[in-house]
């Protein structure tokens, strides 16, 4: 078929569409949803009993704020990258907060060792962390990918990764509001691995939620 013929067919096939809202607005819509979901989860579990003490510890507040910032930045970056005409450099937006978050967790671990001695290195299993981050992060990832499904035919991979990161880091921030984990090393390992698992899941399975490249048939 000649391209001019294809144009004739596409024009004849045209149905009106509503232009999508700007990407920043899409990101905000999703962030509100995330706030609602994670807020509900926190309300159900109740804030941790030592929240006031923990909030006095600088590294704790730092890691909390950095994880929130990572989530927000990743959501904006994903919404922008889903549009064909936005520069790919937006993918770097969450890198700064992400590094800050990891640095805060790392420094927190050192500070713990200094404060409570070698006990800070005690490892425990905390499947609860993994379950919570995956439990709230997965539906949020699905919602974000469906909202940004137009990324499929143009820039699927960064949007999948950023979508997983946005959901997981916000879920991790919510988790640290009610879950009792004393040692930062535990937070680093359990939250970190839960975030990694969700990002990998989004990367491996998320493409099905996006639009597929149209094929001539």
């Amino acid at each position: 078929m000649r391209s001019e013929e294809l144009i004739g067919r596409l024009a004849a096939d045209l149905r009106p569409v509503r232009p999508m809202p700007p990407p920043a607005l899409q990101a905000l819509q999703w962030l509100l949803l995330a706030l609602l979901v994670i807020g509900c989860a926190v309300a159900v579990y109740g804030l941790r009993h030592d929240i006031h003490d923990r909030m006095a510890i600088m590294w704790d507040v730092g890691q909390f704020l950095a994880s929130v910032a990572t989530g927000i930045a990743a959501a904006f970056a994903a919404a922008l990258l889903a549009r064909p005409d936005r520069p790919g450099a937006w993918a770097l937006l969450p890198v700064g907060p992400l590094l800050l978050w990891l640095a805060a967790l790392g420094w927190g671990t050192f500070a713990d060792v200094h404060r409570i001695g070698p006990e800070a290195m005690a490892m425990d299993t905390s499947w609860g962390c993994l379950k919570f981050i995956l439990g709230t992060g997965t539906p949020l990832t699905v919602a974000l990918l469906l909202l940004l499904r137009h990324a499929g035919p143009v820039r699927p991979l960064p949007v999948l990764l950023l979508g997983g990161l946005a959901s997981a880091s916000l879920a991790s921030a919510g988790l640290s509001l009610f879950h009792h984990l004393d040692a930062m090393l535990m937070v680093l390992i359990w939250h970190g691995s839960a975030v990694a698992v969700l990002v990998v899941l989004a990367w491996a399975l998320g493409a099905r939620l996006l639009l597929q490249v149209p094929r001539q048939g």
Binding site: L10, P19, M20, R83, H150, P153, V213, Q216
Partner: peptide, 23 residues
Amino acid sequence: QDALLTLHQLRASYEPGRPLRPW
């Protein structure tokens, strides 16, 4: 032709007011 099909599929993602060429 693949590009024509894709832009047809994604036409809702074009934001009115922004330049069309980069898109």
